[in-house]
Design a protein around this nucleic acid. Structure first.
Lengths: 343, 343
DNA sequence: CTGAAAGCGCTTACAG
DNA sequence: CTGAAAGCGCTTACAG
């Protein structure tokens, strides 16, 4: 028997001598269907390679079994690599979705464009995961709009009071504190901070506050002249380090707000033949795969991307199912290597 | 005016004082609708934040505007990182899809499980992109089954005659040839090959054949004792290099079938305090982001992932639209760095 | 240029 | 345990 095009539940019903709803029930494992009938139907379905049409079932049930992952990128002039940290988040989010039987739709969004909750609005997804650095204040009004519209979403980022919606993030303050304390323990006293330190970049700002806190509790001063703005790219880190060197303020360590910044900074130091860690200790944040491979290997703050992915998905699904859900902070650990003189 | 739940085209029709089909036409830009009517409808739609229900429109039109990307992974015991090369393919595929107005569904598949063309069968996707290393012969029967079922798919991999379906791949033979020739030009004579060299791994095998061809045309012998199996992980590269060292056959260069293998091999050399490139020149394949950061920086064969992603998507969409499409090979270039003594 | 009608392939009360 | 009926929200001939 050949059926032109794809088999439908009606085709199977004919073949099995039952009604179409019975096929639907049987295949979805309803307890209200005779076991023998079910087996017969299942056999036919398999033979015809039948698969439920998701468009039809989603239309009927009004949910999609799909989550949309939206990456926000600062537009890079060269269309360069995606931030490696987000790529490892992507891996763990994908696995967490698979575990819960959800499909994952992914999409890159330009921060600048007028993105919307299109995926959920058009019923392609039951909820959204928002991932990406960028100017927080710029996106805040959009987050508020998502909340207003009742869109289900979680975002990865700083967890702060008064934010619209639910956020999952690592403990940026603690991470900044711990790595700075480590640099202090290594005998460093003039520690520069490379990265934005304002409420436009709340994650970096938290890391900066942790850094400042560690300095103060160990009796050091926070030197404003040792902070230089940078976004999370190698290029930006390189430029910030050049500024730092040009300024002439003495320093014996750099805490970069991300590994990419740290790697760019190390390049600038290397060009001037400054030795790491002997002359300048360097530390980053994220523990991207590259961190262990650069020379010298980079001491950094490790974010547990696997746990993060799981929690993002679990929290979003709770939201989708109208279960209680809340913002959460994930603990960080130090990954100490040679760039700080630790290994 | 408040509408409970999401607005539908019928809601808009009521508000605009037209029929529901007219709303549909207006919003889809049909030329058969009065310009003023269209504007009125569009204004209302925007105000209500209306989005066409994709489940309904897809059901009706029988296509999804979505492509599914299936990653095949050899199961790793530690749930470790995804192959970085595939991650950069992912980036370019995502962008290429966005450019054509398609959404991208991604999914990791265990090679071992009985994966199917579920996404297309269930109408969630119009076609599939298959990405991943693994034993080719094991997957071949599945590819044949996809062809039989009339599933639209393209795979990334070796382009060889007699393969089921359409394949896009880089010129593995040329890449293997060029990098080997480069090592020969550096004065190396005993060049080991780390990577599987059998038709179970056609991409690696092509690279191996390029390597052998370069040796032969320059008057060298191919020494079977200098080939060691490895899959594309750091661990596997490390182990293969250990075997090579244990064997005791003299060698002054390594061509690894992938960058991850090369990085693992360099680790093994490093542990024995063998200097790269002075004692052993090393080259890889792929040009993953890490290649430029390892120490010494890794000479390798660069695959143009951006072009690859574009071609994969273009080819698949041609297939979906019943336009002519064919397998293609993409040229490679050498990225020469310090590990081969080139920079 | 516009509307009434049909139908995409399911799921789920409702009735038996 | 099973079937007849309705309906999810669209798009597209068909008729005017």
């Amino acid at each position: 028997m050949t059926i032109k095009g794809k088999a439908t539940s009606l085709d199977i019903a004919h073949l099995a001598g039952v009604s179409q709803p019975t096929v639907s029930r049987a295949l979805r494992g309803s307890p209200m269907v005779n076991e023998e009938t079910r087996k017969r139907i299942q056999a036919i379905a398999e033979q015809l390679n039948y698969k439920v049409d998701k468009n039809a079932s989603n239309l009927r049930t009004q949910h999609s079994g799909t989550i949309a992952l939206l990456f926000f990128e600062d537009p890079t002039p060269d269309d360069s690599q995606i931030n490696p940290f987000f790529l490892s988040m992507l891996g763990s989010i994908t696995r967490a979705c698979a575990m819960r039987g959800y499909d994952l739709l992914i999409s890159f969004q330009q921060l600048s464009t007028d993105w919307q909750a299109d995926y959920e609005d058009s019923n392609k997804a039951d909820g959204l995961i928002l991932l990406g650095y960028g100017d927080y204040l710029e996106s805040q009004s959009r987050l508020e709009r998502l909340v207003e519209q009742g869109t289900h979403f979680v975002r990865w980022g700083a967890v702060l009071p008064g934010q619209p919606g639910i956020s999952i993030g690592c403990d940026n303050f603690q991470g900044g504190h711990d790595i700075t304390q480590h640099l202090l323990h290594q005998g460093r006293r003039n520690i520069a901070f490379l990265g934005h330190a304002s409420n436009h970049y709340p994650e970096f700002f938290e890391r900066y506050r942790g850094y400042a806190h560690a300095l103060l509790t160990s009796g050091q001063r926070v030197q404003p002249g040792l902070q230089f703005d940078a976004i999370t790219t190698e290029q930006s880190g390189y430029e910030a380090a050049c500024e730092l060197l040009k300024r002439g303020t003495p320093f014996d360590a750099i805490f970069a707000a991300s590994d990419l910044i740290a790697i760019g900074a190390m390049k600038a130091l290397h060009e001037r033949s400054m030795r790491v860690p002997e002359e300048v200790a360097v530390a980053g944040f994220d523990d991207i795969p590259m961190a262990g491979f650069v020379n010298p290997s980079l001491s950094t703050v490790q974010q547990d991307t696997k746990l993060a992915g799981t929690i993002l998905v679990e929290t979003l699904l709770a939201l989708v199912n109208n279960e209680p859900a809340q913002s959460r902070t994930i603990p960080v650990t130090l990954a100490l290597r040679r760039s700080s003189g630790a290994a």
